[in-house]
Simulated scan of single mutants.
Amino acid sequence: MIDISNIHLHSIPPPQNGTVFGSAASFDALPETHKAQILFLDKTAEKYLYEFVENARMLSNGGWAPFEKGIFKTVEQYEHAVDLQENIPLLKKWLYNKGIPFGNWVFVLCDSNEQPLLMSWKMLIKYAYDIFLIGDTLLFDPSRNWCVFNYHEGQLFFAKDNIYDPSAMELYLQELNERKKKYPQFKHPYL
Rank of each mutant, 00 (worst) to 15 (best):
L90P: 04
R179H: 15
T33S: 09
P189M: 06
W94D: 10
V108G: 00
D165C: 08
L173N: 12
V108D: 02
F21R: 01
D161A: 10
T33W: 13
L156Y: 12
G62N: 13
Q185W: 15
V82K: 04
F67H: 05
K92P: 09
S167D: 07
L156R: 09
S5R: 11
P166N: 09
T44L: 09
Q185Y: 12
K181D: 10
H8P: 05
W64Q: 14
D130I: 06
F67N: 03
L41R: 03
F27M: 01
Y48K: 06
N87T: 09
A36T: 15
I2G: 02
E86L: 07
A25W: 08
I88R: 12
P142Y: 08
E153D: 12
S167Y: 14
I131Y: 00
Y127A: 00
Q16W: 11
K69S: 10
I4Q: 12
P31C: 11
V108M: 01
A36L: 14
L133E: 09
H34I: 09
Q155W: 15
L109R: 01
P89K: 13
L117P: 00
W94C: 07
C147I: 04
F102H: 08
E51N: 05
L191S: 11
A168P: 11
I71L: 07
A65W: 09
A25T: 11
L139N: 00
R144W: 13
P116D: 01
I125E: 03
F52Y: 10
P184A: 08
Q77C: 11
A81H: 15
E86S: 05
N177Q: 15
I100E: 00
I125Q: 07
P13M: 05
A159E: 05
L118M: 10
P14F: 05
V75T: 15
P89L: 10
I163N: 11
K126M: 07
W105R: 05
K98S: 05
L124A: 03
H8T: 11
I100V: 05
F67K: 01
D83V: 03
L95F: 08
N104P: 00
F72E: 01
